[in-house]
Design a protein around this nucleic acid. Sequence first.
DNA 1: TGGGCCATCAACCGATCGGTTGATTCGCCG
DNA 2: CGGCGAATCAACCGATCGGTTGATGGCCCA
Lengths: 207, 207
Amino acid sequence: MIRLLIVDDHPIVRDGLHGIFAGDDSFEVVGEAADGPEALVVAVRTRPDVVLMDLRMPKMNGAEVIRRLREQTPGVQVLVLTTFDDDADVLPAMKEGAIGYLLKDTPRAELRNAVLAAARGETVLSSTVAGILTAPQQQQQRLSDRELEVLGLVARGATNRDVATKLFITEATVKTHLLHVFAKLEVNDRAAAVAVAYETGLLKPGG
Amino acid sequence: MIRLLIVDDHPIVRDGLHGIFAGDDSFEVVGEAADGPEALVVAVRTRPDVVLMDLRMPKMNGAEVIRRLREQTPGVQVLVLTTFDDDADVLPAMKEGAIGYLLKDTPRAELRNAVLAAARGETVLSSTVAGILTAPQQQQQRLSDRELEVLGLVARGATNRDVATKLFITEATVKTHLLHVFAKLEVNDRAAAVAVAYETGLLKPGG
DNA sequence: TGGGCCATCAACCGATCGGTTGATTCGCCG
DNA sequence: CGGCGAATCAACCGATCGGTTGATGGCCCA
């Protein structure tokens, strides 16, 4: 009997997950939570074996929730369940010790098997996610804080001079940063750099 | 007894919705579908009163699904149920005749009431969506197909000359289109235009 | 203590872009 | 029928950008 905690901000999704596991003797859903802080509280009380959680939630970022869960509830396995458009969030989540990462369009049977595997301590990755992790890429495209800061301003319409003024540096430095950004993102101009940044999650709508 | 068709590409979400309505005598879930084409097929067979559907789906865009549903199944009410990050899709959906638009984090009870209202032919909008519709904005920023096409190529790193070659027009025309885009999006350069396009959903990650 | 990454700056060049003005054609709506 | 938006093109200009090369200092890790 695997003790399961479900964390998602959508009641509908929680219901769906609950329904999948409730009718199965191998599992017991011991709690639900709608956001990170709530998850932490519920976890200490219910001591789940496996936490099934979405990364995109209000109030606390996914990676931090995972870290704290593992701190306060030793032995818990965190299985991340989210949508495909979180490329950039997968690595931080795995780094904080998530045991696996599944897409929300995973069929029921596969999801069930994944939770069983997670409870046994086995890593489970959906195939597309496995692709992201094994692809020879993201080490290269990781931007420094400063580079991302410059790119963010560019996305908001700043010229090199504007950026220089705002960051108290010279235009020469801004250009250097941008050239590094272009190289890392494998593009040739700022417009494409902005696009790639949105595609990969370096920049996010509404933030 | 309201006949309900559930359309969503995530099995988990379908389960959740199914669970909410299955135990309720006022509703009968007559079918489920994972994408647009499937929804159309299932709808002709099951003749639902209300279709509860996600906008973001593979194979066919949401607005088109709504239009065809209403063509082939007169009297059907389409209630859109999706996440907050689809700003730009709300208006097309309503234009195609969706009776309402709810967010996926809507509580169960409210969702139930919304379906009842939709079945009666009443418009239902979640408050945040109502805000989008009443806000004085989007008429201005609507881009023509051609303008969007140009912007899309720019986002992929094309220079004006590249765009001209690809679309079989001159650079002068490309510049004109882009200037119109800048004016409509209220920006001054292509990088910011790309950013705004992603922010407003004119361009989308992975598509 | 040496190498790497990061941040900073410089000077120069050609290429591209943004802005302006003006014009033609086409199709749709009333 | 007239008007309007969309799409197309032209020529010109100054501003900005992208590319290159090279240099300095700080920091961390091995």
